[in-house]
Computed example of a mutant assay.
Amino acid sequence: MIELKTPAEIERMHVAGRFVAEVLSEVGRLAEVGVNLMDLEHHVRRMIDRRGAESCYWDYAPSFGRGPFRNVICLSVNDAVLHGLPHDYTLRDGDVLSADLAVGIDGWVADSARTIVVGTPDDEDLRVIRATEEALEAAIAVARPGNRLGDISAAIWAVARDHGYPVNTEFGGHGIGRTMHEELHVSNKGRAGRGLELRPGLTLALEPWFTRTTDRIVYDDDGWTIRSADGSRTAHSEHTIAITDDVPLVLTRREQEDPAHLG
């Protein structure tokens, strides 16, 4: 069942969203050449504990994963794009790092992701990162009352087509609120004018993710980390938003959203 949130409930989600934004900004600041992914994982754990927040990932056990997820952040490197399991890996110059975080505070959840370049950026890596950011902003722009869910999907797909990137439809955005995944799947590919009519109080996590040259994915042996099937590099951008009577409210907006972090 789709639950529309009241303005007061959306503000409680915004509290969680501001914290998620703060953590992802901190991850971007710390992600430098020579930093181990587990150092980032443990730093985020400490931030969550200090805030009194609750990780949405710890013990998460959906049908597509292998056993409970025992980390608090997804960290995906280079050709990995989703659900990257933090592990003993030291970041290298030119690595592309996607960080995805969802937490709950006082019973309300927010979810966001960003992709950055560690060290010296490659132009093609920056291009795919910026394409996901452009697609996310295009999706947010059409998330208004009276439009339909397909308008969001179509906006993302249009940006992907313009840049020449294929689109995978197995994973996409979703409803969010009291839990990380609520009713509604938001595909990154679709047709305008189709699907559910958007109404004030609807809260969604929108997350375009692209790979350079394929729409096929493979899983690592850890059962979680998803990679492009051909080894091409990837990018992932996500925000939690709320549909209002006017413009959409972005609950996880960071102060600065520059994908090129020169470490």
Rank of each mutant, 00 (worst) to 15 (best):
Y165L: 07
P200L: 01
E182A: 10
R178Q: 14
K189D: 12
L136K: 03
D122R: 11
G177D: 05
G175F: 03
V128P: 05
V186M: 02
E133P: 13
A160H: 04
G195K: 01
L196D: 11
A192H: 06
F171R: 03
A113W: 04
V167M: 03
G193N: 03
N147H: 13
V128K: 02
L198I: 04
H163A: 14
E133Q: 15
V109K: 00
I176H: 04
P166I: 02
D122E: 12
A141Q: 08
A141D: 13
G146V: 09
P121N: 00
N168I: 09
D162Q: 14
E170D: 15
I176T: 13
N147G: 10
D111Y: 07
D122H: 12
A131W: 03
R114A: 10
V142F: 07
Y165Q: 07
L126P: 15
M180F: 07
N147C: 11
M180H: 10
A155T: 03
V128S: 07
L136A: 06
T115W: 04
M180K: 11
E134V: 07
P200H: 00
V117C: 14
R127Y: 11
P200N: 00
A135Q: 04
A192V: 09
F171W: 14
A154C: 12
P166D: 03
R127T: 13
F171H: 12
V128W: 01
V159Y: 09
V117T: 14
G195C: 03
D125H: 12
R191V: 15
I152R: 01
L196W: 15
T115Q: 06
V118F: 04
R199A: 10
R127G: 12
L149S: 05
L136I: 06
P166T: 02
T120E: 14
P121Q: 01
V167L: 07
D123I: 13
R148I: 10
E124I: 10
G193L: 04
I116H: 02
D162W: 11
E197I: 12
E137K: 06
D111N: 14
W157C: 08
L196S: 11
A138F: 12
R194S: 15
G195Q: 01
V186I: 14
L196R: 12
G193C: 05
H174V: 07
G195W: 01
H163P: 07
G146M: 10
T179E: 14
S153E: 02
A141K: 10
F171L: 12
A154W: 08
V159P: 09
A138W: 09
R199H: 04
I129W: 03
I152V: 13
W157L: 08
L136C: 08
P200Q: 00
L149V: 11
V167N: 04
F171C: 06
L196F: 15
G195D: 07
R199P: 09
D123V: 13
T115F: 07
S153I: 02
E134Q: 13
A135T: 05
A158I: 08
E134L: 08
G193T: 04
P121H: 00
S153V: 00
P166H: 06
N147Q: 10
A138M: 04
